Amino acid sequence: MSSNTSRRAFLKSSALAGLAAEPLLVAAPVPMPEPRAEKGLVFLFQGDSITDGNRGRTTDPNHIMGHGYAFSIASRIGADFPESGFSFYNRGISGNTVTDLQKRWSVDTLALKPDVLSLLVGINDTDLVVNKPAEATSLEQFESTYRGLLTDSRNQHAACLFVLGLPFVYPVGQRSENWERWRDDTAQRQGIVRKLAAEFNAILVDYPALFDKALTKAPIDYWIWDGIHPTVFAHELMAREWIKQVSSQLTFLKKYR
């Protein structure tokens, strides 16, 4: 499939409350509260291979964040705010579905007690629908399991900030085969993630919209080499967009806007 054909196929789918005063007295103004201290935050990136980024499985600090968007985010924030005592973890595992996340959620998420939980999952659930339908979870199961993960995390840490990324797929390479099934199932899972983001007051990172815009500058295989996995250039776009969206809740990130 040519770049122009791929592009056309994708684009088609794609206040202070008033104070009561005593008689004859004027109520003193109440000062605005100080911003919440954004120190010592624990950032955790969870998901599948896109998050995994071939990360190391040891404590070697040279490899623990992998080589994808999670690495770019952590390296930038960690370098610019060394005095803030932030911690960064990557627990993405290649090939994971939402059910796989559920099986390891206690050890790989709850045990780390994240203050900021970034989650990108769903494309492997679609892969099962396309290639191994007997092993696939239904959309209803996907939603209930995903909701359960967020509920468990919220019950553990009520103030945890959720950052939910929309899964994505493009008609490149093998994904060009059965493209309509890839496109339609992924779109339905995107809708579920949007719904959950609203339900849990989470930040939503719309990666598909990001790549829609990127298509005006280069063909899709420049950004997503096999229809699923980002190139180094696309990972950088993801990191920039993640920081931009999260800066709406973490004020120190406005430095990058």
Rank of each mutant, 00 (worst) to 15 (best):
V130D: 02
A214C: 15
R257A: 12
R194W: 01
A214R: 03
Y89M: 09
L204S: 00
T251W: 11
N131Q: 11
L16Y: 00
S72L: 11
D212T: 14
A134T: 15
I228P: 01
I77W: 07
V172R: 02
V232M: 03
R183E: 12
A234P: 03
S248H: 10
L215S: 09
R175Q: 05
E241A: 08
E22V: 14
S94K: 05
E83V: 11
K244C: 05
A111Q: 05
V163T: 13
E22Y: 11
D212Y: 07
F142R: 06
K132A: 13
D206P: 12
A218V: 10
L204F: 01
N155L: 10
A37E: 14
A234V: 08
I243N: 01
E83D: 15
G95N: 07
I224D: 02
G148A: 06
S3M: 05
R240F: 03
G66T: 02
P31D: 07
A70N: 03
R8Y: 03
L117I: 04
N178Q: 12
S144F: 01
V26T: 15
F88M: 08
S14I: 07
Q249Y: 09
A187C: 06
N201T: 12
G66M: 03
K195T: 14
E236P: 01
Y146H: 11
Q249T: 11
T231A: 00
L41Y: 04
L112Y: 03
